[in-house]
Design a protein around this nucleic acid. Structure first.
Lengths: 160, 160
DNA sequence: GCCAAAGTGTAGCCTATACTACACTTCATG
DNA sequence: CATGAAGTGTAGTATAGGCTACACTTTGGC
């Protein structure tokens, strides 16, 4: 990955080399490219948010807890935690639990806010509660800043 | 993949084994699991939709065209087409272009409709055009039937 | 203070999604 | 009708994300 494109702050230019053979139809191609890129950050975002949550509630975030909450094996969780460390989002020492760096915490905060906003919007347009929560889990990773802003504005008007 | 969970019709039970160690917190775990499963079908859906589009407009869908539109190398496109065939969604013979099976066409139709609905909803809540198109590309793959229904209802009311 | 259970970490394997590099068809054009 | 360009297919490689199996560390209960 290596790009700082995780939720607005500190974003950089285009993430990867734009594939060798794409002269025509750049619009749709770019669109799909971005969508794919988003996928690689989605998991990291979920982990950061969950770790922040565990840290806030229980005081500690253990690999097994994370694995359980996410429905994956602990081995998978540990691997992703390793990636989190590599990306500078978390710290962890053997048998000592996981913690977030500054970057990790701010990512978690942004992700949490975004999640709320998405769920609230879904509810506002009439999506039933459980579906809203469920779908938001997937949707939130693909919502741009522009869309987020629009959601926020829509909710503000609605609320009056 | 092997599951028929691609957009409502003909869905089956739970897709994979539910991971060995997940006794507690099943709600959130299930949620994440579903989200992950959705990812593997997302690409197939995009391909089916695009192939249908190419077939409808140009009359033929060639791997290179598909690759260009999606912004990937032709090799990648061919590999995914192979998977499409394996899943019974497409047919293709060497140097002869790609075609959709019945299942493939109906998938494409459902995906197209869903895409429209998502874009329309985003526009309806005030998301600017380009962002709506861009974000819908990612969002659409995570929108459940319940949410789709709600979107549709919301738009109907709005429109009056 | 020992020891088993719980948690942690590592290794090895799998699939999906990409890529580049190379080889083979097709087909248009001279 | 030969030939080269465009398109197609295959092989090999990499990374992300998942799994199981096995080994090691911590820690709680006796």
């Amino acid at each position: 990955m290596d790009d700082k494109t995780i939720l607005s702050p500190g974003r950089a230019g285009p993430p990867a080399a734009p594939a060798p053979d794409l002269p025509a139809e750049p619009t749709q191609a770019l669109r799909f490219g971005k969508t794919r890129t988003a996928q690689s950050t989605a998991l990291l975002e979920d982990y950061a948010e969950l770790i922040a949550d565990l840290l806030a509630t229980g005081g500690e975030a253990r690999p097994t807890d994370i694995a359980r909450r996410l429905g994956v094996s602990h081995a998978t969780a540990i691997k992703t935690i390793t990636r989190l460390k590599r990306e500078g989002l978390a710290t962890a020492r053997p048998y000592r639990g996981v913690f977030l760096t500054e970057a990790g915490e701010s990512l978690a905060a942004r992700v949490k806010l975004r999640h709320r906003l998405v769920v609230d919007l879904l509810l506002a347009v009439g999506v039933p509660g459980e579906a809203a929560e469920q779908d938001a889990e997937g949707i939130e990773h693909y919502v741009s800043d522009a869309t987020l802003t629009a959601f926020s504005a829509f909710l503000k008007i609605r609320r009056r």
